[in-house]
């Protein structure tokens, strides 16, 4: 067990290091620099060079990298070149948009997918089951941004019930903030629900074929009783893994849906930081997201290892 934990943790650290090097170099290979963007059309090359030096971007790359990493280890994510605001503050501004959106989307997806997926599994082989399976198949093919555009067209433009986009901060109006989040949340949740329904259905089907369910049935339980007394409890195991993987997908979906609805969340912050070559903001924000996903994976894996001894051996 300890060996498993140690190996798993070592991998976590390694993944963090590799990602930080990747993200650091990626944004720098890109042409263009923050000074040129900041100073715009009329700036002279000297002005650009001076600003680059002022921002510390003329230093050797390894120095910049270790400076950044050392800062992060101290809990300092750096400051934006354009506004001089600490990245931590920027994140604190954006999280109240992105986190509720992602969580509500995930909650909606689970709320739909788990019951529907289970239902589809019990009805496998019947027309109803096939219908649900087809529906989820179609749902998987729907791009989340199209769902967003259509929802915004219908409920925002045509009916005028909800904002087509934009953001009312929580501090200004709580209902306003919720209103801005409803459509993005539904778009995100529905599309994710399609994927998740499929996973749930397969997981339940697998469990239904497991020996203990068969034993339970053989001992006189009905198919349903066996499934729900014994099966669902056991099926939750692979689902835990799936949810871990879904964290990554959730972030991807949130990125796009924020753009569709012009929500000032993390994604728009990254996008605008990338296009303005605000390297520190890009690096630190992406690292925070990567770290979050890695932590989720770490926790899921450890839980999995604790729950299922076979995992520890194979790892």
């Amino acid at each position: 067990m300890l060996v498993f934990l140690a190996r798993r943790f070592a991998f976590f650290v390694l993944a963090l290091v590799v990602s930080s090097v990747l993200i650091f170099s990626l944004i720098r290979i890109a042409g263009g620099n923050v000074a040129a963007v900041m100073l715009g059309k009329g700036a002279s090359p000297q002005a650009i060079d001076e600003l680059m030096a002022e921002l510390g971007l003329d230093r050797p790359l390894p120095v910049q990298y270790f400076d950044w990493v050392a800062g992060m280890l101290r809990g300092d994510l750096g400051t934006s070149f354009r506004t001089g605001e600490p990245v931590t503050d920027l994140l604190v501004d954006r999280l109240p948009v992105s986190v509720p959106l992602a969580l509500a989307g995930l909650a909606l997806a689970l709320l739909v997918a788990v019951p529907v997926g289970t239902y589809a599994a019990t009805k496998a082989g019947t027309p109803t089951g096939a219908f649900v399976a087809t529906l989820s198949q179609v749902g998987i093919a729907i791009p989340v941004f199209w769902a967003g555009v259509l929802l915004s067209l219908f409920f925002g433009v045509k009916l005028g019930w909800l904002p087509t986009g934009g953001w009312t901060p929580w501090t200004v109006s709580v209902t306003g903030a919720i209103r801005s989040l409803v459509l993005p949340m539904v778009a995100l949740g529905m599309v994710m629900a399609a994927t998740l329904t499929r996973y749930t259905r397969t997981a339940v089907l697998d469990v239904m074929n497991e020996d203990y369910v068969r034993t339970a049935r053989a001992s006189g339980m009905t198919k349903r009783a066996a499934l729900f007394r014994v099966g669902v409890r056991n099926a939750s195991l692979p689902l835990v893994t799936v949810v871990g993987l879904l964290a990554a997908e959730l972030i991807g979906g949130t990125v796009i849906i924020e753009e569709v609805f012009s929500l000032p969340g993390l994604a728009r912050m990254i996008l605008s930081a990338v296009s303005a070559r605000e390297v520190i903001v890009v690096q630190s924000t992406v690292m925070v997201i990567v770290a979050f996903v890695l932590v989720v994976n770490l926790v899921v894996d450890i839980l999995y290892g604790v729950l299922d001894p076979r995992v520890r051996v194979t790892r």
């Binding site: 993944a15 944004i27 890109a30 990554a248 991807g252 990125v255 990254i270 990338v274 990567v290």
Partner: peptide, 14 residues
């Protein structure tokens, strides 16, 4: 284990 979309986004912009 990396959020693919976020990386693809930075990579594509890069």
């Amino acid at each position: 284990s990396m959020p693919g979309v976020v990386f693809a986004l930075v990579l594509a912009a890069t």
